[in-house]
């Protein structure tokens, strides 16, 4: 089940609005595909990110993948606990495993993302 309180990118990131911040993580499908996550290379707070561009690297035992920021904006906060406990992304991808928070984000880009039902359909079409 994909949480309905947030939106999704076709590159398998989720975005949840909390106040004036866009919280970004990866979907359960994405963490499952990557397998055991061993390292996350996070951007610096204050860095500008562009919608659809790489902003972090997630490594697992078998693979490395890019995190694409679903929306443009400025990094407000990063989940520093992932530096020592990256497996939080595996165990709680929609909660404790959040990756970055973006401020001054582009609301129009957020609106264009998939809602939970559309993302589920997208996952089925990819399977």
């Amino acid at each position: 089940m994909v949480p309905a309180d947030r939106k999704y990118a076709k590159t398998h990131e989720w975005v949840k609005i909390e106040g004036n911040l866009a919280v970004v993580g990866i979907s359960d499908h994405a963490q499952d595909s990557l397998g055991d996550i061993t390292f996350v290379d996070l951007p610096k707070p204050g860095a500008q990110v562009r919608g659809g561009s790489e902003c972090a690297v997630i490594e697992s035992v078998k693979a490395a993948g890019d995190l694409y920021s679903p929306v443009s904006g400025k990094i407000a906060e990063i989940n520093e606990s992932l530096e020592t406990v990256p497996e939080k992304i595996n165990t709680d991808p929609y909660g404790e495993g959040w990756i970055i928070k973006i401020k001054d984000f582009n609301a129009a880009e957020f609106d264009n993302l998939l809602d939970a039902a559309a993302y589920e359909n997208f996952l089925e079409s990819e399977a």
């Binding site: 061993t38 390292f39 290379d41 490594e59 035992v61 490395a64 990256p86």
Partner: peptide, 10 residues
């Protein structure tokens, strides 16, 4: 080789 940290070489 032991690498500096958790980032992996391939």
């Amino acid at each position: 080789f032991m690498l500096d940290g958790r980032r992996s070489a391939r």
